[in-house]
Write a protein that binds this DNA or RNA. Structure first.
Lengths: 272, 272
DNA sequence: CGGATAGTTGAGTTATCTCAAATGCAGTGG
DNA sequence: CCACTGCATTTGAGATAACTCAACTATCCG
């Protein structure tokens, strides 16, 4: 891969996408730089996908007519920046507004396991609300906008608003489902299956957010990211993905990934 | 279990502990056979460890003086029996009263991943409360007593009792933590590390429940179980555990496992 | 242009798997 | 009480998926 064509980086492509639309869900954007406001268009994606945790937290009551209140303004993190370090006591619940991020755990000897990629609307883990843990870190993959909700405030809201619990339950559920699937992948699947599954999984999640069409999607991940998610080596990821491209399953150009043959990719993903 | 010695099955040992004490948290035991009542002493373990989900669900209000109500009676499942099949729509939230069980996912081709061992006080997954999923199954490892709470009722209670949310949050949190740790183990650790860690983990969980002392514990797991949890082959598990025994890390007699050298085992568990 | 990061490819290594055979042990039925 | 069956474990030998090391290329960015 890595075609010889003049190419397009993720950043470049993002800059060419439609302009601001001052945040469909009505959040405050005061104080943001123009670039940041541009990124905020991602909130549209949150609302489009059924990812309502952020929206739910931003309403003071369950009355949908009530104007948004006490919403933390989005904050900006450039690609690769650590949003919450592993030695940092997580005082906040983070929700991604736009861009890609990830949560991971890193060993003393450098081995790293990515637990999840975070897309717009995702939170690092609802676990954090009740019992924050050391050792996990949140890191921006692309440029990212995110909101930080104070843990204590979230807890208070939770106790006073039953509807929030329902929403939280959905989010929790999805989160746990993905964690379990990850465990199966890591424990009982071959490298090609793992990678195929993660590509399909990502395509699905992006699709829900209107961030993918016709099997074509932004793909800012380095092979190192895929390796650390799937428990493989970057070298091996390279071999497998090259093979996928050689056999016409997928195509990668610049930072765009296209799934050329979903059916066949699904077959790879499901049966060894 | 079911050893030749008249002794030391899980059930037998539990029966020798202080008498039924008609269930510390006050649950009804009417209708149980004597054997089942014997097993119920396990509830003591639940209460001893800070595993209060079951206890919390069994109270009608948050007032501790209120007598227990509408508690489902414990049900019995012999070893190996499937408690909730993977094609079964999980209408209930299951909580283990005594014995060992497990949740797992099995592929079409037979590969199986155990997601978690369930000890007294554990639930298959709080995920079930909000969005039950197909594909998972719950299976008894030893003889087991468990309670089935109707999902709908649990939900209702949840919305009306904020204190329950706090409890649930704790359980979530622990559950997710373990799921994440499992992912790291599977993705980024060697076989001996994985096994050592699981042994320590189990020792810890049993310890909290007063089911282990001096590093000695009931150990009803077949090597197949360990293999399916750690993503290894039974053959390889055998090799590693034999090595552990040969080098004096652990000792296994009948269905009892003793950790002989915690320090060294920890070192194996943490640094490759 | 130079330096850094990302990906590709080859060659040799290794952790773990597969297959297979042998042993032990528990439960069953005669 | 014994032969028989089935499961769990052990052990050996050979196979393989994935790893490591290393060199090379491509791409990005100042």
């Amino acid at each position: 891969m890595t075609s010889t064509k003049p190419v397009s980086t993720a950043a470049a492509q993002r800059r060419t996408s439609p302009r601001p639309q001052p945040d469909a869900a009505g959040g405050k954007t005061r104080g943001d730089t123009p670039a940041q406001i541009g990124l905020l268009a991602g909130c549209t994606a949150c609302v489009a996908g059924q990812l309502k945790l952020c929206a739910a937290l931003r309403k003071k009551t369950s009355d949908p007519a009530e104007p948004p209140a006490d919403t933390p303004a989005p904050e900006y993190a450039p690609a690769r920046r650590t949003i919450c370090g592993r030695r940092e006591w997580p005082e906040f619940v983070h929700i991604i507004c736009s861009g890609w991020a990830m949560t991971s755990i890193t060993h003393a000897d450098g081995r790293r396991q990515i637990l999840s990629f975070l897309l717009p609307g995702d939170s690092e883990s609802t676990l954090n609300i009740f019992q924050p843990r050391f050792g996990r870190s949140i890191e921006a993959i692309t440029d990212v906008l995110y909101r930080r909700f104070k843990r204590e405030e979230v807890r208070e809201k939770l106790f006073s608003r039953p509807d929030l619990i329902e929403t939280l339950g959905q989010v929790w559920s999805e989160e746990k489902e993905r964690a379990d699937q990850l465990a199966i992948d890591l424990g009982r699947r071959m490298a090609d299956e793992r990678i195929a599954r993660q590509l399909l999984e990502l395509a699905g999640r992006l699709g829900k957010r209107g961030m993918a069409s016709e099997g074509s999607m932004e793909f800012p991940l380095r092979q190192r990211h895929i390796a650390d998610l799937t428990g493989l080596t970057p070298v091996h990821v390279s071999r497998v993905m090259s093979e996928f491209q050689r056999t016409g399953l997928i195509a990668i150009e610049g930072r765009t990934l296209r799934i050329l043959d979903v059916e066949r990719l699904r077959r790879v993903a499901e049966y060894r």
